[in-house]
């Protein structure tokens, strides 16, 4: 940064932080009893990257996603850092770090006893200490952005799956997270509702949000992904650009997987 050439479009220090590592997994292993769900995962996701995690069912991709905000614990010896800070084991520190990591679940998990707008304002009010009026204003803006502002006063069960999932995205965004995790966000949706959710995610990706997306939507992976991570049996087998993954998969199991999902 030089004082002589003021560049109003560049935020200060943008250059030095543009590619900082937001999510770092070092030597992450995870056992469920004797079953090893994750094997020696080493992964760095820089700011602004959209990483698509694909793989057959039971390959550990959801587990990987859930370890990043410690909904799943990991075996000793591994570390996970969010924006340079190691994930604490539990307590207030963990809660604070989780607030920086937005999570969207396969089954939406909207708070069933709270209205749509209350779902979005709960975190900002109770975790960030925002005033109710301000939280509501921000929530309405977010609901507008994902296209469900009309439904703000309804209860979750009154909305379609696609609408509920868009609310879930708004709820996560309301915490102003540094990174967003999507755990098969469209897998529980009726086919005609998949696109409306993917559209919101594509828009988010284009706005520069750092995202880790576990999905079977290969169209989305090609369109919005910067990187495809292929997992099988708990290990990362391939980690490359979407185009080369889809056109020239290297690993035999990746070829096999693509052959199965792209034929129908």
């Amino acid at each position: 940064m030089t004082q002589s050439t003021p560049a109003p479009t560049d935020p200060p220090a943008a250059d030095s932080t543009a590619k900082r590592a937001l999510v770092e997994l070092d030597n992450v292993n995870k056992h469920f009893g004797s079953f090893q769900a994750l094997k020696d995962i080493n992964l760095t996701i820089p700011e602004g990257q959209v990483a698509i995690v694909v793989g057959p069912s039971g390959s550990g991709k959801s587990t990987l996603c859930r370890t990043i905000n410690r909904l799943e614990t990991i075996d000793e010896g591994g570390t996970i850092r969010i924006d340079g800070k190691p994930l604490p084991a539990e307590g207030k520190g963990l809660a604070q770090l989780r607030a920086d990591v937005g999570m969207v679940f396969q089954s939406f998990n909207l708070f069933a006893h709270k209205s749509i707008v209350e779902n979005v304002t709960l975190g900002p009010i109770k975790v960030k200490g925002l005033k109710k009026s301000q939280a509501q204003e921000e929530a309405m803006a977010l609901l507008e952005r994902v296209g469900v502002a009309q439904q703000a006063k309804k209860m979750p069960a009154q909305l379609s799956g696609g609408q509920q999932q868009r609310v879930a995205i708004a709820r996560a965004l309301a915490m102003r997270p540094k990174v967003m995790l999507f755990d098969e966000p469209t897998s529980a949706l009726d086919p005609e509702m998949v696109q409306e959710v993917l559209d919101v995610m594509v828009q988010l990706a284009h706005e520069g949000m750092t995202m880790v997306v576990v999905t079977h939507e290969m169209g989305f992976a090609r369109k919005a992904g910067d990187r495809v991570i292929f997992m099988d049996q708990g290990a990362i087998l391939e980690d490359t650009e979407p185009e080369s993954f889809f056109t020239h998969p290297q690993h035999p199991r990746a070829k096999d997987f693509l052959g199965k999902i792209l034929t129908h």
Partner: peptide, 11 residues
């Protein structure tokens, strides 16, 4: 429900 609550930073 509990996971979603934890995910938005509630202890």
């Amino acid at each position: 429900q509990a996971e979603a609550a934890r995910a938005i930073g509630l202890s």
